[in-house]
């Protein structure tokens, strides 16, 4: 992919080919379940089968709602 024209051409070529069999793909998805899709919004990484390969920068932390935002703000910035 060296320039914009090439990139658009790739799209145009795919759409123009009309070879994608949506029915067959839908059947494939139905037979293989949702494991092939990554519906989670919490991940950037990819999925191979059922396994997530995760790289955490910065680390994931558990979610809590009880913490007073002002407390957190005070701890981080030193102000209240």
């Amino acid at each position: 992919m060296s320039n914009a024209a090439d990139r658009e051409e790739i799209v145009r070529k795919f759409l123009g080919s009309k070879v994608f069999d949506f029915g067959a793909f839908g059947k494939f998805v139905a037979e293989n379940g949702t494991s092939i899709a990554s519906a989670s919004d919490g991940e950037f990484g990819f999925v191979i089968g059922h396994r997530f390969i995760r790289y955490c920068i910065p680390p994931q932390v558990s979610v809590i709602q009880e913490l007073d935002p002002a407390v957190m703000r005070g701890e981080v910035t030193g102000g209240r």
Binding site: M1, R7, E8, L15, F25
Partner: peptide, 30 residues
């Protein structure tokens, strides 16, 4: 992708990669 092409938005790496992925998916179920 069709909308992107129609409105002149398809000249991005993401669109090209999406077309590439669909092409490979097509090969998977051919």
């Amino acid at each position: 992708l069709q909308m992107a092409l129609t409105h002149g938005l398809a000249d991005t790496t993401l669109c090209a990669q999406a077309a590439g992925l669909l092409t490979r998916m097509g090969a998977l179920v051919a």
